[in-house]
Simulated assay, not measured.
Amino acid sequence: MTLTVATDPTSQRRSTTVRVVLTDLAYALSLPLVLLLAWESSSRFGWLPQQILPAPHVVWATFVELWSDGSLVDHTLRSLWRVAAGFSIGALLGLTMGAVLGLLPRLRAFVWPVFTAIAQVNILAWLPLLVLFVGIDEELKYVSIAWSTFIPVLLATTRALTNVSPKLLELGRVLDFTPLQRVMTIVLPASLPSLFTGIREGLSAAWQTIVIVELLASFEGLGYLMVWGRQLFQLEIVIVAMIVIAAVGLLLNLSLEYLERFVQPWKTDATNER
């Protein structure tokens, strides 16, 4: 007589999810650990002078010092506030104008080549003109961040709306949906993945832009902290600021990915079923 042990599908799925998460975490941490080991080896064996690449323990001590006196937190929060304000403005304008261009083909045909050409120009090329129009104070930061966000969000939104499957649109017409129902029931759900891609690109561009602008004209923020460390010939301060910039950028991207899964539960369910 053979005994069969029943397994709980929910428990089995949870165990699989945990195993996948731990495996992904191990892979994600392996390269940083290898780089840290190489960094420590370079410091111990003198492969590079301390003036060029300070030892990890020196960088850690600098991080603890800057964290303890509150300066690192203040600079980080200042940069985050500038990004939040500029990104909100740029993303809102990009989504709005992208929706207009996506839903109005004639207007899109008129202005699309211009926006495509503008997208090829890096924010560094626009800075001299922006300085002439808005000066070098806080307005420059907000306008630069908003502009860096606006372009990728606009392009992604327009492409998302224009790439909706014609079969889905035809289904809406067969079911006699109103224009608003077609947009809310068909166009928007089908466009969400591309919309979030544009928003992630916009946020990444915004975070990179704030560092560039603060490097050029600022007395606060992580970019200024890097300039200050370079002026003092203390590269450990520069490295601390770089690590914080990378960590915050990663957290922002992960937050958007979590929001995307929350807004698109059907996508997560389909992935789990596979």
Results as ranks from 00 to 15, higher is better:
Ser165Met: 05
Asp137Asn: 12
Tyr258Lys: 10
Met1Val: 10
Leu132Cys: 06
Ile151Asn: 05
Thr62Leu: 02
Tyr224Ile: 06
Ala6Lys: 01
Ile243Ser: 14
Thr7Tyr: 01
Arg82Pro: 04
Leu104Ala: 12
Leu3Ser: 11
Val187Asp: 05
Gln208Met: 13
Ile89Lys: 04
Val73Thr: 12
Val211Gly: 06
Thr178Asp: 08
Ala117Glu: 01
Val121Cys: 08
Ser15Pro: 02
Val244Pro: 01
Asp8Cys: 08
Glu236Leu: 03
Pro54Cys: 14
Leu252Cys: 15
Ile123His: 08
Ser194Arg: 08
Ala206Lys: 05
Tyr142Gly: 00
Ile237Ala: 00
Gln181Pro: 03
Ser43Val: 00
Phe219Arg: 09
Thr197Phe: 00
Glu65Ser: 14
Ile239Ser: 07
Arg19Gly: 12
Gly229Asp: 07
Val143Cys: 11
Ala217Pro: 01
Leu175Val: 01
Thr16Met: 13
Ala61Val: 02
Arg44Ser: 11
Val131Lys: 07
Leu252Ser: 10
Thr17Asn: 01
Arg182His: 04
Thr7Pro: 00
Ser148Phe: 07
Ile52Pro: 00
Leu22Pro: 03
Leu22Gly: 02
Gly70Thr: 04
Glu201Lys: 05
Ala241Leu: 09
Pro128Ser: 12
Pro152Ala: 11
Ala109His: 11
Trp112Thr: 03
Ile136Gly: 09
Leu203Cys: 09
Leu252Gln: 06
Thr10Met: 01
Ser68His: 10
Leu222Pro: 03
Glu170Thr: 10
Ile123Ser: 10
Arg261Cys: 02
Pro265Arg: 00
Ala160Gln: 08
Val240Gln: 06
Leu127Glu: 02
Ser194Ala: 15
Leu215Val: 04
Leu250Cys: 04
Tyr27Asn: 01
Leu168Arg: 05
Trp126Gln: 09
Pro49Gln: 07
Phe45Cys: 01
Arg159Ala: 14
Val18Phe: 13
Val238His: 04
Thr116Arg: 09
Asp74Arg: 12
Gly98Phe: 02
Gly198Cys: 07
Leu66Asp: 00
Ile123Gly: 08
Thr185Met: 10
His57Val: 00
Ser165Cys: 06
Ser194Val: 02
Leu33Met: 12
Leu252His: 06
Arg182Asn: 13
Asp137Gly: 15
Tyr142Asp: 05
Trp47Ile: 13
Leu36Arg: 00
Leu129Asn: 06
Ala91Cys: 14
Pro193Cys: 05
Val58Thr: 15
Val20Ser: 08
Val153Glu: 08
Gln120Ile: 09
Pro265His: 07
Ile89Val: 15
Thr4Val: 12
Thr17Pro: 03
Asp24Ile: 03
Leu203Val: 13
Thr178Cys: 01
Ala109Met: 05
Leu103Glu: 08
Ala217Asn: 12
Leu37Arg: 00
Gly229His: 07
Glu257Tyr: 03
Ala91Ile: 02
Pro54Gly: 11
Thr76Trp: 05
Leu37Cys: 11
Lys167Cys: 04
Val114Leu: 15
Ile245Asn: 08
Leu140Gly: 08
Arg19Tyr: 04
Ala119Trp: 11
Glu236Gly: 00
Leu175Phe: 14
Leu155Pro: 01
Pro193His: 02
Val134Lys: 09
Val153Gly: 10
Thr209Leu: 11
Asn163Phe: 02
Gln50Thr: 12
Thr149Ser: 15
Ile151Met: 15
Ala38Met: 13
Lys141Tyr: 03
Leu37Lys: 05
Ser41Lys: 02
Leu80Glu: 00
Leu171Ala: 15
Pro49Ile: 05
Leu95Glu: 08
Pro193Lys: 03
Glu138Val: 07
Trp126Asn: 08
